[in-house]
Design a protein around this nucleic acid. Structure first.
Length: 397
DNA sequence: AACCTCTTCAACCGCGAGGCT
DNA sequence: TAGCCTCGCGGTTGAAGAGGT
């Protein structure tokens, strides 16, 4: 039965086996069979992380908090699984991790959500659905758990009161009409949301890593001022096409700088989402490179210029184009883009490109679909644009 | 004051993704 | 490549507090 002891010297079972063997009398090693049997039994007993026996559950006491905090401040969390024992806690690693990430972390803001935060949550939820961790990356110092709770206990009810379906973010009376048709356009928005969701998740991951590194660095050098940096430079869900780009910066997605917390709008650019090759011959020089299917473009707007990033569906490359911002205001741009406004649809997406409305093959029904959603999005954006007191009045009804 | 109902939110649970061996 | 392990996510639960009768 050698497989049960094979990792004694190295590998994943190393720690586990050390813990087991250190409390075993040497006489137990008289035969491999005895040793193996012992290991099997002990692993069965202690292996589950959330082993019920002897581990405390329920609310944390101040003493437990202090122990966890002190341990992490000194050593970092390391392996959550082994942390409780090292920190002297009768908890499972999972419970410790949750307590740390949702409560003890020093970069957590507690207390009431601001109107701005509420609006951000609603906007992002409309786009991403219940992807709380992705939403949380755009609300600095708020945890996904907190946002989830706040949504379930406050915002969802408020939307229902306003006659808005909290799942679809449409007015109730619009849900029926949209469900009878326009599936193509629903799919369009769905595609947009999926890609944006993927991007946000990638950013969330990077932000977490960045935060963790930063926190650990701070622990290593405690004389340095405590900062909890959320910056992250790269968004790696898209790769560049080989031989394209002029330097390292080309590998960086311009989307990575978008944050709602800084009042920079997240822009989703529907490029028409052709499902055939109509786009292919619109560019003389790049005809062979024009993607057959452009899902959408995501942009950050930090000035009057807009950077477009085009994701090519099959070959996974990006193209960046800088062009003047086609809309007058940030909010307006966001609205029109989300709504598939014909103005933004005519954005140049490449040289000599036909208006994207024609590329999209937008018909009457498609426009109606966007019109149907316009009221909702405009109401959201009106809240953003209006004064806090106005928003407050509307939200606190 | 006692009881009941509702609300809130910290914590738990189960699952899946991703990394490591 | 398979199996194992850890971690993180999203849904859910239940204790505690608030408010109403």
């Amino acid at each position: 039965m050698p497989i049960h002891v094979r990792d004694r010297e190295k590998g994943r079972l190393q720690d586990l086996n050390r813990d087991i063997f250190c409390c075993v009398s040497p006489s137990i090693y008289q035969s491999d069979a005895k040793r193996a049997a012992f290991v099997i039994i002990v692993i069965t007993i202690i292996s589950p992380c959330c082993d019920k026996a002897g581990l405390k559950k329920g609310p944390w006491t101040p003493e437990e908090d202090q122990k966890l905090l002190a341990y992490i401040e000194e050593h970092g969390h390391g392996s959550w699984r082994s942390l409780p024992e090292k920190a002297g806690l009768q908890r499972c690693g999972k419970s410790c991790r949750l307590r740390w990430t949702n409560y003890l972390r020093p970069d957590i803001k507690r207390g009431k959500f601001t109107v701005q935060e509420e609006q951000t949550i609603i906007q992002l939820h409309a786009l991403l659905g219940n992807r709380w961790s992705a939403i949380a990356t755009h609300l600095p110092k708020r945890t996904d758990n907190e946002i989830k709770n706040y949504w379930n206990t406050h915002l969802k009810k408020r939307l229902l009161k306003m006659g808005i379906d909290p799942v679809t973010h449409k007015h109730k009376n619009e849900t029926l009409s949209s469900s009878t048709g326009q599936s193509k356009n629903a799919a369009t928005l769905s595609h947009m949301a999926q890609w944006e969701s993927a991007r946000l998740e990638a950013e969330a991951r990077l932000a977490r890593e960045s935060k963790l590194l930063h926190y650990q660095n701070n622990n290593l050098n405690k004389s340095a001022p405590q900062q909890h940096c959320f910056t992250h430079k790269t968004s790696t869900i898209w790769s560049t096409k080989p031989n394209e780009g002029t330097g390292d910066q080309q590998l960086e997605s311009p989307t990575s700088t978008v944050t709602f917390s800084e009042n920079l709008p997240l822009m989703i650019m529907p490029l028409g989402i052709p499902t055939d090759n109509r786009n292919r011959n619109n560019n003389n020089n790049e005809s062979s490179e024009i993607p057959a299917r452009m899902e959408f473009a995501v942009s950050s707007s930090t000035s009057s210029d807009v950077s477009l990033v085009v994701k090519e569906h099959e070959h996974d490359w990006i193209r960046q184009i800088n062009c003047p911002c086609p809309t007058e205001g940030i909010g307006e741009g966001f609205t029109s883009l989300l709504l598939g406004d014909p103005i933004s649809r005519s954005l140049p997406t490449g040289k000599n490109e036909a208006p994207s409305s024609s590329v999209a093959g937008a018909g009457e029904s498609e426009f109606n679909y966007y019109e149907d959603n316009k009221n909702y999005w405009n109401s959201i954006l009106n809240l953003v644009d209006s004064s806090p007191s106005d928003s407050q009045a509307m939200f606190r009804s």
